[in-house]
Design a binder for these strands. Structure first.
Length: 666
DNA sequence: CTTTTCACAGTCGCGCGGATGGGA
DNA sequence: TCCCATCCGCGCGACTGTGAAAAG
């Protein structure tokens, strides 16, 4: 496939390897040129000033998941037509058009089969990355910029890194990268929205590169991302910069242990639309402003570093800040400049560099890009969808003060508590919405019982407003399959020994990987308070079950905090099912129907509003902000917009189990 | 009317300094 | 007595969403 055919007007010096990759795939480009933003009027001067990094940032990348979705479906016509059609008809996120929604957002479904195939046919697929991870055509889905001149033939952004020792290069390189490379415009656009399977795994082969190895990237906190994604994730942008939540966190495998890499995140426009929240849902509102200038790249503070380093620990970008202030970026902090009410897609880039931090000029193929569709978000200056607000409050430890039921969460006797008291583990409770986690027995039982239980709540909590749901139940169901298939990839990750965290920001304490301290990951680093960040993920289930490392230690009376622990028992559907039933029976929480979980039935007054016109609904959605959680939810005026059936809950439990299994030691 | 900005309160982590205890 | 390590409390700053006001 010729890039020009899918990127009209584009004249980009892309590595040949990417073309080869594209041509090797039978998937078609789902990004019709007619829907792409024309970047020809972009500031060329600034673009020319930027380094060749832009080249691979924008043009040399492959959108793994997009192509995944297409190749998986096996229906190229459907894959290519669905998204454009949706856009033409003003893609309403989570609109009432369930059919459309299902088609467009059957992300997990796509991922499911892919993983299933991978796990069942590893011998053939592994050897053929393109078949296993058919990313061809992805290149075409990345808007590479209409102006080829912006992408010089050299990849030398790393060249600005001081040729000093590595440690200094890391720090200096970070600042100089930001200052020296004004990624003035979003160097690329990603179309269409929600193209991919939403997998937690992304990979791209590097054909024809002997030295470069094919890396695999795993989205660590994917359950959390998916949860937000269902409601259309929103990210606050402020002048001083706002951290992302959920933040980006990855595990990487497949790198050359001794080679050095720069790892950074780029945020690009996900679609050509301007969005607005109207009638309780996101609708397009004109064209996106593609002239937005400002930095779009955040280099991981520890870049550059060895492949072994990157693979040893989880790589998180918790300190990444988003801003709408074009001039906010300084040399001290990296901030990504975005525009409000535009949809963006973060992408992870891994670029091999020489030891002194200079990008390896000898091989342009040593750049890899990974995209996870569930990371898409709409930048806002104020939250629009209260479901998102509630999710943020429930999950972000910094928003703990807004959890109305916080005080009542631990009023129960010690023996009845699900989670440790704040004194046990200052953070273990932060994201555990009160009575959701009831009656936690000992370690083993906790582990077994908690997952289903928590994921039942997860499912119920995710009761998505009818107008906002992004993923159909089918897709969720399929997600379970994908999760289970993720087991196939356990090997590489485990071998990598990913155990700790690179980013020592607060997020590091909540990393998904660090949530797996109990013999799951070898040689874990000291990364306390991990699980609490993911209350609804499989890891969070563990967190809820074990509450925290401290509580666990208390119970297990093991010596070292990170001493080897017995691996949790393997899970089967039967086990899950039975355990789930047990949880259902023994749980002290509200019934699964009605007001279970944080999303409660709306009080009559709000229901009346809800039953009114869309503006009324919008107002209700925008104004309500009541912490759900726990026992206080009965009086909560929260609107419950959608209920999940128990069946769906079970499916989600399975999905989560599969997700967790990714980290489970055999 | 929509969007953005700002001050605010609440929570938490980190760093600093003092107190304490053990060993030389 | 001095030195060092550890523990503890306090204060500061970072971070969050809220809600009103300002801006467009």
């Amino acid at each position: 496939m010729q890039l020009e055919s899918i990127l009209p007007g584009a004249s980009v010096n892309l590595p040949k390897t990417f073309y080869n990759l594209s041509s090797s795939s039978e998937s078609t480009n789902n990004s019709p040129g007619s829907t792409q933003i024309d970047f020809q009027d972009m500031d060329r001067t600034e673009a020319e000033q930027s380094s060749g990094a832009k080249k691979f940032l924008s043009g040399g990348s492959a959108l793994i998941d997009e192509a995944d979705s297409e190749s998986f479906t096996g229906n190229k016509a459907a894959a290519s037509a669905a998204a454009p059609d949706a856009r033409k008809s003003s893609p309403v996120i989570g609109g009432d058009d369930e059919l459309s929604s299902a088609r467009r957002y059957s992300i997990d479904e796509l991922g499911t089969d892919r993983y299933f195939i991978s796990s069942t046919q590893p011998s053939s697929d592994v050897t053929n990355p393109c078949s296993l991870f058919p990313y061809g055509g992805q290149t075409g889905s990345v808007y590479s910029g209409a102006n080829g001149s912006r992408y010089s033939s050299s990849l030398h952004y790393g060249s600005v890194l001081p040729p000093a020792g590595f440690s200094s290069a890391v720090c200096a390189g970070r600042s100089q990268f930001g200052s020296g490379y004004q990624f003035g415009q979003g160097p690329g656009c990603l179309y269409p929205s929600y193209p991919g399977p939403g997998s937690g795994l992304s990979s791209m082969p590097i054909p024809g590169s002997g030295a470069a190895t094919r890396a695999q990237v795993y989205l660590c906190n994917r359950p959390l991302w998916l949860k937000f994604h269902r409601h259309q994730t929103e990210m606050i942008i402020t002048k001083q910069g706002r951290r992302m939540f959920p933040f980006l966190s990855f595990n990487i495998t497949g790198l050359n242990l001794t080679a050095h890499y720069n790892v950074f995140v780029e945020v690009i426009l996900a679609d050509p639309n301007h969005w607005r929240f109207q009638g309780g849902k996101w609708v397009t509102c004109g064209k996106a402003d593609n002239n937005m200038q400002g930095n779009k790249v955040y280099v991981h503070p520890e870049s550059p570093n060895t492949g072994a380093h990157w693979m040893r620990q989880e790589i998180s970008f918790g300190k990444l800040k988003l801003t709408n202030n074009k001039g906010a970026n300084n040399n001290n902090t990296q901030m990504i400049v975005l525009q409000s009410l535009h949809k963006y897609q973060p992408r992870l880039h891994i670029v091999e560099v020489t030891e002194d931090g200079v990008e390896d000029m000898s091989s342009e193929a040593k750049t890899q890009t990974f995209t996870f569709p569930e990371n898409q978000f709409i930048a806002v200056t104020a939250y629009q969808n209260t479901d998102i607000t509630q999710l943020k409050i429930d999950h972000n430890p910094f928003a703990k003060g807004f959890r109305d039921n916080y005080d009542s969460m631990y009023t129960a006797p010690e023996s009845d508590r699900l989670t440790p008291s704040p004194t046990d583990s200052p953070r273990s409770h932060q994201i555990v919405p009160g009575a959701r986690y009831a009656m936690q027995p000992f370690f083993q039982d906790q582990f077994v019982n908690n997952l289903p239980q928590n994921h039942r709540f997860y499912a119920s909590e995710r009761a998505v407003p009818q107008t906002n749901g992004l993923l159909s139940p089918q897709s969720e169901d399929s997600a379970g399959g994908s999760a289970s298939a993720q087991r196939w990839f356990v090997g590489p990750v485990q071998q990598s020994g990913a155990s700790g965290k690179l980013d020592l920001s607060y997020d590091s304490e909540y990393s998904a990987s660090s949530l797996l301290p109990y013999g799951i990951k070898p040689l874990p680093l000291q990364s306390p308070h991990a699980l609490s960040y993911y209350p609804d993920s499989a890891f969070a289930s563990m967190a809820a079950g074990w509450s925290s490392r401290s509580s666990y230690q208390r119970k297990m009376t093991t010596g070292l905090p990170w001493s080897p622990r017995p691996s949790p028992p393997a899970y089967t559907d039967d086990l899950l099912s039975s355990k789930d039933k047990l949880q259902d029976e023994s749980s002290t929480v509200a019934p699964t129907t009605g007001s279970t979980g944080p999303w409660m039935e709306a009080p009559p007054v709000l229901k009346a509003v809800d039953s009114g016109d869309t503006s009324g609904y919008s107002m209700a959605c925008k104004r309500r902000r009541v912490s759900p959680g726990g026992s206080s939810t009965d009086a909560s005026p929260t609107i419950k917009c959608e209920d999940l059936s128990s069946e769906e809950y079970n499916k989600e439990s399975h999905k989560a189990m599969g997700y967790y299994a990714f980290y489970t030691s055999p």
